[in-house]
Design a protein around this nucleic acid. Structure first.
Lengths: 135, 135
DNA sequence: GTATTCCTTAGAGTTAACTCTAGGTCAAGC
DNA sequence: GCTTGACCTAGAGTTAACTCTAAGGAATAC
């Protein structure tokens, strides 16, 4: 079975070795085994698990909560419901973030055309009429 | 003309007065005037500007870069191009964030059905076959 | 056999963005 | 005229998530 060193995993996941050790310190990687002399030894499944961790992180989940999830995983089938509920919550959270981003995008696009017009006119005064524009 | 105190603005924008003072300290609100005894006096346009600041913040822009933008605004028409370019960059950035979120959402949804199946079966072993699942 | 290059740990330092405290001013209510 | 409450500042403290340093172990290169 193919295994990986910490720096190989860091490269693969676009993280630093510092970050990976930090995650380990925080209890996010209890599954990673060691060589006889103490070096971390990553399996494919470990990299898969780290990808799930990265996914949770990208939903804005703090590391402490990710640790709770990892702990649930170690506890086995008795925590299936908690884990399911967690992902349902994450889903709602991501949906809300998408909504937020859409609103942000609308404002940004408005500003893009605002500045295009101003730039073409050579002055922002072209937008004097607008109520709350100003910048 | 209607004006607002710092706590009214905080309430309106769902920020704390601490945060607003911090923004001011960082140079994000050079336009806010003061009463004779030194209290901040917010106009409607100031609230509009703060909404733009909040929008930029929600694109992930750090406060120092927002300050650069505010400085450009104070400099007038000579910075129109920089400001336009900045919003174009922000737009690309938000688009990338949306893409990221979509990918995240796909994984989350996969996990939701993974755990639904496992929960119904009473055990995660139902997914034994899967290559990189595990959690 | 020694230099290099990877790995290890504990713990200190950094950064951003707040968040709060202490000490003070000022206007309104009683 | 004094209390209350909202405002002010400077500066200290907090938190999360890294990020790095120091000191050392083990395998490989020459």
């Amino acid at each position: 079975m193919k295994t990986y060193t910490i720096s190989e995993v860091a490269k693969e996941l676009d993280l630093t070795v510092y970050t990976l050790r930090y995650y380990d310190k925080e209890g996010l990687m209890p599954f990673v085994e060691r060589t006889p002399n103490g070096n971390r030894l990553f399996k494919e499944t470990d990299i898969g698990a780290l990808k799930v961790i990265e996914c949770l992180k990208s939903t804005g989940m703090p590391i402490k909560e990710i640790k709770t999830f990892i702990d649930w995983c170690s506890e086995g089938d008795s925590t299936l419901e908690q884990r399911y509920n967690m992902f349902i919550e994450r889903k709602a959270n991501v949906e809300a973030q998408m909504e937020e981003l859409k609103k942000t995008m609308e404002i940004i696009q408005h500003k893009c055309s605002y500045y295009k017009t101003a730039m073409d006119a050579g002055t922002e005064d072209i937008h004097k009429e607008e109520k709350l524009a100003k910048m």
